[in-house]
Design a binder for these strands. Structure first.
Lengths: 222, 222
DNA sequence: CCTATCATCGAACACTTGTTCGAAGTGTCT
DNA sequence: AGACACTTCGAACAAGTGTTCGATGATAGG
């Protein structure tokens, strides 16, 4: 799904998606008119409909494209890594990194999840559930391994997602700590909270050396 | 601001606010028409405008009324409590309790924060900032007391709000743990994460005896 | 019972919305 | 150059939007 041929058509489509995402992120989906998007993309109103057949499909394309990439990147990143704690750390790192580098799209994904039709909602929710289950199972493993009981796994899972997805409400790359720092903070905050005192033993929480952050995981950029 | 005289007018206004909040929470503010609200409240379209002078003021009234109560309740609850950790625990408990008992209003407050005009946005944001600052200062104190450095206070603050405010996306009172459990879990998760291993010492994390949950802090209900 | 204030209503207005359609422009291959 | 598919556009439509206004019903005090 990511980084495909890139025909003339594809390039322009991506440009439209990225521009629209910025407008949606700024004004919200419902109060953005097709005329707003026409203005932002410098295309005629009717010209837009060559690339999608309804405003709602446009929203879907943004969400699906964006979320598919997060999952795909995550899958690739976790490949071959066995230790559940390390897997979780990589997942958090990937999630936050993608979020910060594609704030508009991720805001639209997080904020306008319910603004699409039932059918398309289901389609995205299937992927979303897979992603959530991945985290939930990871936490289950970790809890079992470390006998970290007493914490509801569902609460822990969505607390983690809350921490990560809420950032579009406050995070400002210009005045806040950078992605690496953000990632380190949230990982430490959550993991040592989830594991209790055990989490700090054996230096397991140091976010080992080279991060993958230099790798550009964005499909939008370029 | 809460529990005032309750004239005929006030009672009906509250009813309209509560009903509208439910519709907004369900369909979203922008895709809810005044005719939807007219239907839900069983009032005529024009009759609604006797209670507010625009759709956007209706949204504001919901948000302001709701958030003012959270703050007011919180203020009362923390009165006389000095230990910052205990203060934080009470604040979390109050926040989550109010959230769960007024899910519709809180969802509207969290989700439609940007759907109001700049002037009104400022008005609410002033209160919101006070509330955020309260938490941020609390965390600062706690960090200083416990030498829990290495965690960015701003990240920690908004991570906590992320955990708490995200619940409208997943929490289902019928299948999830109850408010007390939710509160205990999130408190433990965050606090022992924030304090590191120190947080678990001395039983400081037991959510001491009788909670305030039986107290009805809602202004909407009755 | 009368009257003044409160509360509600139907009907209409001015405007914006998403979308369509047929035509015109653009580029590419033979 | 001509033919053909790809891409863009202006103009219009039908439906839905938030809001207003004058009039009517309800309620309570004298």
């Amino acid at each position: 799904m990511p980084s495909e041929p890139q025909s003339r058509y594809d390039q322009k489509l991506v440009h439209v998606l990225k521009t629209s995402a910025a407008v949606f992120a700024d004004k919200g989906y419902h109060s953005t008119s097709m005329r707003d998007i026409s203005r932002a993309t410098k295309m005629s109103l009717s010209g837009l409909y060559y690339y999608f057949k309804s405003k709602e499909e446009l929203l879907f394309l943004i969400q699906d494209y964006c979320f598919s990439t997060v999952i795909e990147d995550c899958r690739r990143l976790l490949e071959g890594v066995d230790d559940p704690v390390r897997r979780l750390k990589l997942l958090i790192e990937n999630h936050l990194n993608y979020f910060v580098n594609n704030m508009n799209e991720m805001k639209v994904l997080s904020h306008e999840a319910n603004s699409i039709s039932r059918d398309r909602f289901r389609k995205i929710n299937t992927k979303k559930r897979q992603y959530v289950d991945l985290v939930m199972n990871l936490l289950g493993e970790i809890a079992r391994e470390n006998r970290a009981d007493g914490v509801d796994i569902r609460v822990a899972t969505f607390s983690l997602f809350g921490m990560m997805n809420w950032i579009y409400n406050w995070y400002d790359p210009r005045k806040d700590v950078d992605v690496a720092g953000l990632s380190k903070n949230i990982t430490r905050l959550f993991l040592s909270g989830f594991l209790g005192e055990r989490g700090l033993k054996a230096g397991r929480l140091e976010t080992g050396r080279e991060s993958h952050l230099d790798r550009d995981v964005s499909i939008w950029q370029q």
